[in-house]
Amino acid sequence: MATFENQQYTKEMLLIDGHRYEECVFTNCTLTYEGGELPAFINCQFPGTRVQLAGAASQTITYLSGLYKGGFSKKIEPILEGVQRGVYPPEERPKPPPPGHTGINFRELYITHAVLIGGTLLLIFAIWYSYITYPFYEILDEGQPLFEEFPLEAMPALPDSLAEQYDLRRDEQLALLDSYGWVDEEAQIVHIPVTAAFDLLIEQQSTTTDEETE
């Protein structure tokens, strides 16, 4: 859609479908409307200008004319009166249908509801079925023990005194680190407390450092 402002047209044939004219002067022109989008004229002047219909607009006139002459004059006259009155008054315009409540929309609404209700029922059924299949609790029979006894032969063969063995072994090892004693008497090798070994090690390091410094 084009907009034309302050134009001067003289002896021209113009296709006006969908165009907007503001402050234009049409002098001895022919304005042709072909039944497309409505044109708009704002503060225009039309000296010697004629209007004609073509295309779909012309076909509409021919159709109405045929109906009028073919016995449907009473049907056509209100339309002609409407043409004479101007545009349709708002109260005579057909009202649009309320959205979602007519035709195919209404059917889709049924389908949506059916799917939602069906899905909910299915979910309820699944929960109920899982509940009866895997109950959260079990009702014990008369005399039934609360826990099944684990067969003894399937248990790992750990001695009852394992913790005592661990403690014994740890104490033996720690005693080696906290006392003097023979490791190999023939070779004159002894074990000494680890704290004494700390001092020896530090002393050895300082001796080595001193030698390197010298």
Partner: peptide, 9 residues
């Protein structure tokens, strides 16, 4: 230190 502790003279 452990080695020294268990292999001292």
């Amino acid at each position: 230190a452990l080695q020294l502790s268990q292999n001292a003279s």
